[in-house]
């Protein structure tokens, strides 16, 4: 039990520390790296409470894919001169909006935690029949594909829509672009590849069409 507590405090202290460093560190790159550290330590906490599937998915999706894209964007922007200056006493216009959103999120968290803490029968009142013998991977799959199948599909459709939207927003059709067509290249034949042309004197022929 004591080892469990030691590991719990180890990971949670790292998680809180790195969450603080995400918003306070001077360079944006370091913020992203602290965000990654935060994801990893939260993943470890998930594994510690026995939700190993959630922990691994957190690592794969957030650390392995989302944070890589973050890093990508931050590295591509020239951020060396964009220090986060709000902490150093300079005026910033983002503070009121940020405060509003963080207060909202804090209130939401209060509602969730309050409901979970002071309503003992919240778990038992649900209609799900969970079997504690199965591993949580099986249970998540079981519930997701039966009880919440519709919500699962709706969220999938929303993701698909947002993907199509993102592609449409960045897509710009360019004219006069030479593209490689693999089918054309492979289907070239000896007979059509070479052509003998009669060249009129002092006029020439236009080869490139």
């Amino acid at each position: 039990m004591i080892t469990h507590a030691i590991f719990f405090y180890f990971f949670s202290i790292i998680a809180i520390f790195s969450a603080l460093m995400v918003i306070t560190s001077r360079s944006t790159i370091n913020s992203v790296f602290f965000l990654i550290l935060d994801f990893i330590s939260v993943g470890c906490l998930f594994i510690m409470i026995g939700a190993e599937f959630l922990g691994m998915i957190l690592l794969i999706v957030y650390v392995g894919a989302v944070a890589v894209l973050f890093l990508f964007v931050v590295m591509m922007l020239n951020v060396s001169d964009q220090k986060q200056s709000w902490f150093m006493g300079k005026k910033s216009t983002h503070i009121p909006a940020g405060l509003l959103f963080s207060v909202l999120i804090f209130l939401e968290l209060l509602v969730v935690v309050g409901g979970w803490k002071y309503k003992d029968n919240l778990m038992s009142s649900s209609t799900l029949n969970l079997n504690s013998e199965y591993s949580n991977t099986h249970e998540i799959g079981n519930v997701m594909y039966t009880e919440y199948f519709l919500y699962f599909q709706i969220s999938g459709i929303i993701l698909l829509l947002s993907m199509i939207g993102a592609i449409l927003l960045t897509y710009s059709k360019r004219e006069n672009l030479k593209r490689q067509s693999y089918i054309d290249q492979i289907s070239r034949e000896k007979l059509t590849a070479v052509e003998l042309k009669e060249v009129p004197f002092e006029k020439g022929v236009k080869v490139d069409d």
Binding site: F53, M56, I57, L59, I60, V63, G64, A65, V68
Partner: peptide, 11 residues
């Protein structure tokens, strides 16, 4: 999943 997660961190 563990192997998949670790190999996705390799980047």
């Amino acid at each position: 999943l563990y192997i998949f997660a670790i190999s996705s961190l390799g980047v």
